[in-house]
Simulated scan of single mutants.
Amino acid sequence: MSRIDESRDFLPVRIAVLTVSDTRSTSDDRSGDTLVDRLTEAGHSLAAREIVRDERDAIAAILRRWCADDAIDVVISTGGTGLTGRDVTVEAHRDVYEKEIHAFGTIFTIVSMNKIGTSAVQSRATAGVAGGTYLFALPGSPSACRDAWDEILAAQLDYRHRPCNFVEIFPRLSEHQRRK
């Protein structure tokens, strides 16, 4: 069963938060605020934060820029994961991924199902890796951001979490690039 191994030191992770919205601004970005509060309370650092409109190319450009930034380990986006015509965050993420973390969406759906029932079927939360950076796309509601952080990301972004976590394999995420 999962647990925190107190014999290991906590390693802070540098996390960027991207809000995808046609209507939000920094004054009313509750989902972005929720993520920033959660990650800083956990001891991680906010590496960057932006708001971008629901435009596939613009989202992908920011993701690529942040993946190329050595000061960013993880990108969490919020918004644009639904089913409407303007919801293009998942497609933008997949344009950038080198590898998709398929189980993230499955686990997020399970967590959501326990909270909101069958409405969880409407979420397309996703995750992947690109350029040695983890990328997570979450729905745009503060409750979905809380659920994803509290139930999945808090543990997986904690080096002390056992039996395994995302942090301990950071050094190996880009090993294929070193072989070239």
Rank of each mutant, 00 (worst) to 15 (best):
V88K: 03
A47G: 08
L39S: 01
S27Q: 14
R30T: 03
S77F: 01
S119L: 08
I107L: 15
S27M: 07
V74A: 10
H102L: 12
I72D: 11
A68R: 13
R56N: 06
V75F: 02
I51Q: 00
G32C: 03
E98G: 04
L83G: 13
G85Y: 07
T89N: 08
T40L: 06
G105P: 13
I107P: 01
G79I: 05
L35Q: 02
E100T: 11
T106P: 00
D54S: 02
E100L: 07
E91P: 05
E100V: 12
A92N: 01
H44M: 11
A47S: 15
D57H: 10
E100D: 07
R65N: 10
I76F: 00
D28S: 05
T78M: 05
A103D: 03
H102M: 11
D95V: 06
D29H: 07
G117I: 06
H102W: 10
L35G: 00
D57G: 13
G80C: 05
N114R: 06
C67G: 09
K99G: 04
W66G: 05
G43M: 08
G85P: 10
D54H: 00
R94G: 07
R64E: 14
E50F: 02
L83S: 12
G79V: 08
Y97T: 10
H93P: 05
A61F: 06
L63K: 09
T78G: 03
I110A: 14
I76V: 11
S27C: 06
H102F: 13
D37T: 13
K99R: 15
T89A: 11
D70W: 08
R86S: 10
A42M: 04
G85A: 12
V111G: 00
T81S: 02
K99C: 08
R38W: 01
G82T: 14
H44I: 13
I107W: 12
D69N: 15
I76S: 02
D87R: 09
E98T: 11
L35F: 03
F104C: 10
R65G: 14
L39G: 02
D69M: 13
D95M: 14
S77G: 00
V90K: 02
S77K: 01
F108A: 05
T109K: 04
L39I: 15
D70E: 15
V36D: 11
W66P: 03
V90C: 03
V75W: 00
D70G: 15
A48T: 09
I110M: 15
G32A: 02
G85N: 10
T109A: 10
G43Y: 06
K115G: 03
H102E: 15
R56C: 09
I51K: 01
L83P: 07
R86I: 08
T118D: 07
V111N: 00
H102I: 09
L35M: 06
S112C: 02
I59E: 04
A92M: 02
D28L: 08
A42F: 03
E50R: 13
W66I: 10
T34K: 04
V52Q: 15
D69C: 12
V36Y: 07
R30F: 02
I110Q: 15
V88D: 00
G80D: 04
V96F: 12
